[in-house]
Nucleic acid binder design. Structure first.
Length: 253
DNA sequence: AACCGTCTCAACCGCATAGAG
DNA sequence: TCTCTATGCGGTTGAGACGGT
């Protein structure tokens, strides 16, 4: 049986950190560095669990943290990255020097989400809400009368183009197969190889290289045979994409 | 001044994953 | 290959701050 992450059976402190606790932790880490969080509380004389110490250090005590309000450029970057990565806060925070994943997540939930909603943009998929509604209606009608998925795809792409036109600021491109959270292609199995390679297109203003790759894990195929896929494979075929339920997004920094 | 609703953000929690043995 | 432990991540919670009535 796995031990609980937070063991409060030994009179561990909970809640807000006191200045003395902060001081103890900061002093300890300055001398000994960040290693083995589990042992740090005892070594530093703190009645906290290791996880709590790690969180406190990363989110508050780290000397390289940038405190204060987010700048416009930071907001802009968060929105763009969220459009690409979804709620991968640690990845997003990694592109914002001095910001933590917790900080970015909180800022998104308290400010940016609302800001996008006010602008008529769905913060979940970064699409214009009224256009999305209209497109969905059209899509539903067509889907009910035609079974051809290519039709859906055309509408999806047209719609996406329209969103980009309406909100060029976000430069969303057509990253429909980057990730199951980010992309919402009606049916990715209809994409051509060319379309998949376009999903690896760079976003020049972000200086990001977004490359499709299949997860390194061995995947079971329906026929029962096992196939090993190369982790760094950047050119993947439609068939491989089909066999992969969760394509991995790689960020090369 | 008191109450209430909303907002913000630090901290908690549980799950996933990496890595060691 | 399997099991176990430590760490990392993202969703959620709750206390305190703040503004409106």
């Amino acid at each position: 049986m796995r031990k609980p992450c937070y063991d409060h059976s030994q009179d561990k402190n909970k809640g807000a950190w006191s200045k003395q606790e902060d001081q103890k932790l900061a002093d300890y880490i300055r001398v000994h560095g960040e290693s083995c969080w589990r042992s740090i509380p005892r070594a530093a004389g703190l009645l906290r669990c290791g996880k709590s110490c790690r969180l406190r250090w990363i989110n508050y005590l780290r000397p390289d943290l940038k405190r204060g309000n987010f700048g416009e450029d930071e907001e802009d970057l968060i929105i763009k990255l969220h459009a690409l990565l979804g709620n991968r806060w640690s990845l997003i925070a990694g592109r914002l020097p001095g910001r933590t994943d917790n900080e970015v997540k909180n800022y998104w939930n308290s400010h940016l989400r609302r800001k996008l909603i006010k602008m008529g943009i769905d913060p979940n998929n970064h699409r214009s809400a009224h256009i999305l509604h209209h497109q969905q209606q059209v899509l539903d009608q067509r889907a009910s009368s035609e079974s051809d998925n290519l039709v859906k795809h055309k509408y999806y792409n047209d719609h996406h183009q329209q969103c980009n036109d309406n909100y060029p600021h976000h430069n969303l491109g057509t990253h429909k197969v980057i990730d199951d959270q980010v992309s919402e292609a009606p049916n990715s199995s209809t994409c051509s190889d060319e379309e998949y390679s376009s999903s690896a297109t760079l976003l020049p203003d972000l200086n990001l290289d977004l490359t499709m790759a299949i997860s390194p894990f061995t995947r079971q195929h329906t026929q029962g045979q096992t196939r090993h896929l190369n982790f760094m494979e950047s050119k993947v075929t439609t068939r491989e994409i089909e066999s992969c339920s969760s394509p991995t997004l790689l960020l090369f920094i």
